[in-house]
Design a protein around this nucleic acid. Structure first.
Lengths: 335, 335
DNA sequence: AAAGGGTTCTTGACCGGTACAGTAAGCAGA
DNA sequence: TCTGCTTACTGTACCGGTCAAGAACCCTTT
């Protein structure tokens, strides 16, 4: 059984190959009846439409956008915030006629996704800007949109105003009277990761305005137990009355650690999360946190790359944040 | 600036195009020195390796595997279990030199991912077997692996022994003396979804062996508040002493509902989850649940589709489950 | 009646590679 | 010296489409 191609359908109907192509891809280029006839013959022949690979080569567009991730995948997918982002991206891309291909960190050196996978452009998400993946994308001269990343001034970037967000969180604590404040951030490895860097900076600046310095603890996203350990350590080795956290999951870890040490939240300790993710509202107490609209971020990123692919200019965006006060923060405890 | 192709590199070095191709794709076909020379020239010319789209057409392999999802993406990505599955799949695929492309439910009818995206095969995951997506894949005659799905006897299937798992959960409750048992399952819409169907069946059978029938409540994954409402309703309208849940998230909802009604878990009510996902261990009390190895499922699924693409036969698998007893179940309360 | 303008379909080139069957040269063995 | 086997490279034919320009036809318009 020979493969069914455009040509075979054309032969069967008795028209040129191009006409069949048009029947599928540009319906306005041929008469209604002929098109119906072609589609019908295609159906009976078992032709399922133009081969995507061939079409990609001919058109110079594959119709797929890559999502470059550098950290371990588990980090990207098992984190609520990232997952929501990915869902939003895939959603908006589909709406624009594009598919999402995951460009994973390579497992060997024979196959490098960022180099070997057919995509028209890419979103650079959880990456070290100096990573090989980013380098390959730029060598391929693919349009790129950076998300929560610094890839240079010329690269369209979708980011969040973490500086202000963090500052708002810190000010909230200051207004409640807290003066000995701890922060739980990511390890030095992420020193240049914009979210981590900016949140830390925002906290520092807000506290600095009052002549204060935070007690800084650092930990990693995985394993999840690491945050609990770091939080316990922070609470035992210092006398902070409040902790600002890199994200809501860390905030939960701090609360768990405090509880384990017999301290109540917000009675003895105030905790501020970040993101306003699921973790912020499912547990008790509900978290005071800094909200960012991750879905909007995903939509914007997908829209930006789609625009670039269509030859339109794509603007960078800095999304706003908003302090959400709930039950994990309260006035500084009496001495 | 003309595009840099294999040919331009070939011209520059003074060899045939084929030789350059071999330098990149089949290093054993040419001498070490010539290869080095070609690679060096390619480097200076800014050639980043064979164009993936062209290669895909010529080879007849795109190097991408589709993941067909039918429900809204948010369901797929914001659920811990699915996210873990996707991560495992992407991971194993990369290891085998394949990329993962998300085949989202279509947003219009001009662009249907299952029909128009270049992939070599697909994993069918959270789908209605009668969906258009599945139909397109089979029309394209693409190799397919079903995960937690029934796509017919000829389709390689990776599944979980939910029948036994559910039964184990139910027996556990029976052994604790419970006789009035409720279950919280997915809505009728998922009547034929294997996990939902088999878990329900497993529970029914185990209870049936004791001449009992469960009180069945049904709800949806999203919005998350739905489960809480359904659980509240179940607890208020019946006098069950234990509830078997479709997953751990539902179990948490049941616990939350019970707590809101002034009933303690496991003192007044026993709750059994399913999956042993993050939700099982992060909250209080830790859940008694039925563990399944989602990562293994992902690895197996990816391995199976990779095998099919390489022309090897791929075996179906039914993964085992294991009852994990923690703190959400206890003896039936005294009347 | 010639010019202009739509449709509708066809022609030929091209997208950027890979497969496979050569060919030429070098060297071993008989 | 001839055969036969490697190794190293080349030539040609695809892979299955799309693009851009052109041809044939019919209908207006002037």
């Amino acid at each position: 059984m020979a493969k069914v191609t455009l040509q075979s359908v054309a032969d069967e109907v008795g028209v040129s190959r191009m006409t069949v192509s048009n029947a599928f891809s540009r319906p306005d280029q041929l008469s209604k009846e002929l098109r119906e006839r072609i589609l019908a013959t295609a159906e009976t022949l078992g032709y399922s439409g133009p081969d995507p690979a061939a079409r990609a080569l001919a058109r110079g567009r594959t119709g797929a956008v890559g999502l470059l991730l550098n950290g371990p995948l588990s980090e990207a997918f098992e984190d609520d915030v990232s997952a929501e982002f990915v869902a939003a991206v895939a959603d908006e891309l589909t709406r624009r006629g594009l598919a999402l291909t995951v460009l994973t960190p390579p497992q060997g050196d024979r196959f490098l996704p960022a180099r070997d996978v057919a995509v028209d452009g890419a979103l650079v998400y959880t990456c070290d800007p100096t990573s090989a993946g980013v380098a390959w994308l730029s060598r391929r001269k693919l349009p790129v949109v950076a998300v929560d990343q610094d890839l240079g001034r010329e690269v369209t970037t979708i980011g969040v105003d973490d500086l202000s967000g963090a500052r708002a969180g810190a000010r909230h604590l200051l207004e409640l009277g807290h003066r000995r404040i701890g922060v739980l951030a990511l390890t030095e490895q992420f020193a240049h990761d914009p979210p981590n860097r900016d949140r830390l900076l925002g906290w520092r600046r807000a506290l600095g305005e009052h002549g204060l310095e935070p007690v800084v603890a650092r930990t990693t996203l995985l394993p999840r137990s690491a945050a609990f350990a770091a939080a316990t350590d922070l609470l035992e080795s210092s006398d902070v009355t409040a902790v600002l956290c890199f994200d809501d999951v860390f905030a939960r870890a701090v609360i768990a650690a405090a509880t384990a040490l017999g301290r109540s939240v917000p009675g003895d300790l105030s905790v501020v999360g970040y993101d306003d993710s699921r973790a912020a509202t499912v547990g008790v107490p509900a978290l005071t946190t800094v909200r960012q609209d991750v879905t909007a971020k995903g939509h914007l990123a997908a829209g930006a790359i789609a625009d670039l692919l269509d030859g339109r200019a794509a603007r960078s965006h800095v999304l706003p944040t908003e302090l959400v006060v709930r039950d994990s923060t309260g006035p500084v405890p009496a001495p």
